[in-house]
């Protein structure tokens, strides 16, 4: 546990030091979104990597968070922080209630059910024009602030978003190292065996699902207050798939992997832009190639690389001696 905390502290220090090393500008703006996506990817990873439950509807919770925050603050004039907390509670309750029937399902039936849920929410956001503004979106969401400090520049947004993201990561690291984490992994490997050993698998799965939903909802609120404009197309099925890709490319069950996956997929379009229209093809190819050759994700790749270097090192040292 202590080792994990040291690792986390190192990571946090690096994350918070990043803005000092770059000149600001556009990259900083992208890194804000990397932070939001990290929260979402970690949330999904808790569900997928630790409890082994797939979800293709994560974007729905993200969207609900964004819209609840947006509507409560803009239409009803609530304080953004209150709105954020209320949205998180409402979405948590919703996830808890639907979690019981949904998580009874397995495999692609679970995938289908979560996908269906995601599409229903998307349709509601898209069609309930009087409240959500419909397909043309919802604008004028106020920014966040504490007292006289307004998060209105990329630098300030960066610290706001990354503080939240780091808190979520810390929570996740703690969770996975705890008794709950071990119970979750047991469910992942064999639900029956876990049950026999006295794990209340069903309740635990629903709790993780709820936790994942609440984190996604918070990310949504942050998105709404940072961009100040929201429209349904951001929260569609394709984004759920993108999140899934982040988690898998980063490495299932690895918190830092999720961050890496989020960073890669958010920054990838920047590098692919040189390919012009070909980027969608490269994106598809990358997914296939990654799954084929590095099924454990980038984190596994780095571990292999590291092991390789370490094996090489004593060998050379031996020759020298």
């Amino acid at each position: 546990m202590r080792r994990e905390l040291i690792k986390f502290a190192l990571f946090a220090a690096v994350a918070l030091a990043v803005p000092a090393t770059i000149k600001g500008g556009y990259l900083l703006n992208v890194l804000v979104f990397v932070g939001i996506n990290t929260m979402l990817a970690v949330a999904l990873n808790l569900l997928l990597g630790f409890a082994g439950q797939i979800s293709l509807g994560q974007a729905a919770f993200y969207g609900l968070g964004a819209y609840l925050s947006g509507i409560l603050t803009t239409t009803y004039g609530w304080n953004p922080w209150t709105a954020m907390a209320v949205a998180a509670m409402a979405v948590g309750l919703l996830a808890f209630v639907i979690g019981f029937p949904i998580l009874k399902l397995k495999g692609h039936y679970l995938a289908m059910a979560t996908l269906g849920f995601g599409i229903i929410i998307y349709i509601v956001l898209n069609e309930y024009v009087d409240v959500t503004g419909g397909p043309s979106g919802f604008s004028g969401v106020p920014g966040l602030g504490i007292g006289n400090l307004h998060f209105d520049s990329d630098l300030k947004s960066y610290y706001l978003v990354w503080t939240m993201a780091l808190l979520v990561m810390l929570l996740a690291v703690n969770l996975t190292q705890s008794r709950i984490g071990r119970a979750l992994r047991a469910i992942h490997d064999s639900e029956v065996a876990a049950r026999v050993l006295g794990v209340n698998a069903r309740l635990l799965k629903v709790q993780v699902f709820t936790c994942s939903a609440v984190i996604s909802c918070l990310a949504g609120s942050l998105y709404a207050h940072t961009v100040t404009f929201i429209s349904p197309s951001t929260f569609g099925f394709h984004f759920s798939v993108e999140l899934l890709t982040m988690v898998i490319i980063g490495g299932l069950g690895s918190i830092y992997g999720s961050c890496l996956g989020a960073a890669l997929l958010t920054l990838l379009p920047e590098f692919l832009r040189t390919f012009q229209d070909y980027d969608i093809v490269v994106y598809g190819l990358l997914l296939i190639v990654m799954t084929m050759f590095l099924p454990g994700g980038l984190v596994q790749g780095f571990e292999m690389l590291w092991a390789g270097i370490r094996r090489l090192w004593p060998g050379r040292a031996g020759q020298d001696a």
């Binding site: 500008g25 556009y26 703006n29 992208v30 979104f33 979106g137 990329d154 998105y223 961009v227 404009f229 929201i230 429209s231 197309s233 951001t234 379009p269």
Partner: peptide
Amino acid sequence: DPTKAVQLAT
């Protein structure tokens, strides 16, 4: 994608 549009405008 509105999110991309915002990033690219920046």
